[in-house]
Design a protein around this nucleic acid. Structure first.
Lengths: 231, 231
DNA sequence: GAGTGGTCTAGACCACGAG
DNA sequence: TCGTGGTCTAGACCACTCA
C-alpha cells in the first residue's frame, strides 16, 4: 500500500538479510567487498552502501574501516529487570573502571548536590565473549563512599548500605540514537537505536544515594517492569 | 580524539541546528530548497541531504515530499507513567478506532489465547495540535468485552472491571527504529528512535485481560517507573 | 603497497504536491 | 505545469588495516 515501489536499496538489503538468516553468510564471516557486491547487484557503490547501512542499523552487520563488512554474531538478548536497587546486568562479565570526578552536566540535579561536588564514577562495560554488550555509568556522591579503596563490586551490590535504608528507585527510560562515543565503545552503528535508562535511588531521608545511566542497545536488550496490583 | 575530521555533513547539520535553535529559522517555517542550501554551503545535493537526514533523525526537521523541508514545532515532552493498569497517555486528544480482529503474530502468545481467536483492537493515535504524538494498540480478548457497542473509553478506563480483580501489570520496553508504517502514521523519520512498550495486564486467575503495544517517539516521550523499597 | 571502507561530486531521471 | 524532494549513477580522492 504505502510502498508499491521497492527501492534498490531495500531489495538489496532484503536479499542480504535473507542470505544471512539462511546461513549463506555465516556469523563472523566477512562479506564480499562493497565493490564486489555493487558489481553483483549491478548498482553503484553509494547505493550498495546505503543498503548495508540498513543492515547495520538492525545490528546484523558490523563495518570495520579498512577490513570489511562482517556478519555479527547474534548476541543473546538480555533483560534489565527494573524496580530493584541492585546492579543492572548481573550474569555477564564486565569491564569496570572507577574514577572520582566532579559532578557536571545533569549530574548535580540528578544527585541533588552542588555542582562540581566530588562523586565516584563507576564505568561498566558488560561483554558477551569479545563483543561489548551494554554500558553503565554509576555515580555515587563521595560522602556515601568514604573508603578510598572500596571495590566497585561493593558499590554495586550493597543491598545493605551503611547509611539510612533505601526508600525509592526511580527509573526513567527513553529511546535515542547513541552518541559517537557510545557507538564506538559498544562497537555499534550510530543508527542503531538504544534504550537510555536513568535510575535514581533515594534513601528514607530523601538523599540521593546513587544515580545510574545505562545504555542498552535495542538489538540485544529489553527492560522489564513488573507491578503487583494487589491492594 | 575520535573525530578530528569534522565532515561537511556534520558541519552543515551543526550550522542548521544552530540556526534553528537561535530562531533564525522559525518553527513551522520552510527551509530553502535543497538545491539552494547546497549552493549556499557549496556542496552537492546528496551531501546536503545527508546533513538534513541527521536533523530529521533528531526530530528537528520534517521532510514533505514535493513541498520542502520544514522546521518542526517542538512538541511537549510527555511522560508515560508505568506500573498502572489504566490508560497510557491521558491528557492528550486522541484519534480512536476500534475493530475486531483475529489474533495473529505475537498476540496469541501475549494474550495466552489460541491463534486466530477474536480480539478487540483499539487503535489510539494521540495528537498535540495537528501533529501525531504517539501510537497505541490495545488488544482485549473478545470474551472480556462481550458488549458489541462498548465504547473504547470504557475499555481504557475500566479500573473496576466486571471480571476478577486485576493482579499484575508487566511492561517490557525496548528501543528500535520505527517500521515504515509507524513512521508514516506518526509523521516521523524512519531514523528517529522510538520506545516500544508492551504492557500485559493479568487478573488474579492468571488470565490476560489486556495487552497494549505502545510506540513512543524518542524525541518527545519518556517512560517513568517509580518503585518503593519500603518493606 | 594493495585492498578495504568513508566521503564527496555533478550531474540524471523519477515521484510528489500545489496551483 | 513547475518546483520540490527521492533515488541512483560513475566515478574521484582520502583514510584505515594488514601483510
Amino acid at each position: 500500500m504505502i510502498r508499491p515501489v521497492p527501492s534498490r536499496r531495500q531489495a538489496i538489503a532484503d536479499d542480504l538479510r535473507h542470505q544471512i538468516s539462511t546461513g549463506h553468510f555465516q556469523a563472523g564471516e566477512r562479506l564480499p567487498s562493497e565493490a564486489q557486491l555493487a558489481a553483483r547487484y549491478k548498482v553503484s557503490t553509494p547505493t550498495l552502501r546505503s543498503a548495508l547501512a540498513l543492515l547495520e542499523g538492525e545490528g546484523l552487520v558490523e563495518k570495520i574501516h579498512g577490513s570489511g563488512n562482517f556478519v555479527r554474531h547474534p548476541l543473546h538478548r538480555i533483560t534489565y529487570v527494573g524496580g530493584a536497587a541492585t546492579s543492572p546486568i548481573a550474569p555477564l562479565q564486565a569491564t569496570v573502571r572507577t574514577t572520582i570526578v566532579q559532578a557536571h552536566g545533569h549530574l548535580p540535579a540528578l544527585l541533588n548536590i552542588p555542582p562540581l561536588s566530588p562523586v565516584t564514577e563507576v564505568l561498566y562495560i558488560t561483554h558477551e565473549g569479545k563483543s561489548p554488550h551494554s554500558l553503565a555509568r554509576i555515580y555515587v556522591p563521595r560522602d556515601f563512599a568514604p573508603a578510598d579503596s572500596s571495590l566497585p563490586e561493593e558499590l554495586a551490590a550493597r543491598s545493605t548500605p551503611l547509611g539510612p535504608p533505601l526508600a525509592e528507585v526511580q527509573e526513567r527510560l527513553s529511546a535515542r540514537l547513541p552518541t559517537q562515543e557510545e557507538a564506538t565503545t559498544l562497537r555499534i552503528s550510530t543508527s542503531l537505536a538504544i534504550l537510555s535508562l536513568t535510575r535514581v535511588t533515594t534513601d528514607v531521608t530523601g538523599r540521593v544515594v546513587e544515580a545510574a545511566l545505562l545504555v542498552l542497545p535495542g538489538d540485544r536488550a529489553d527492560a522489564l517492569f513488573t507491578t503487583s496490583l494487589m491492594a
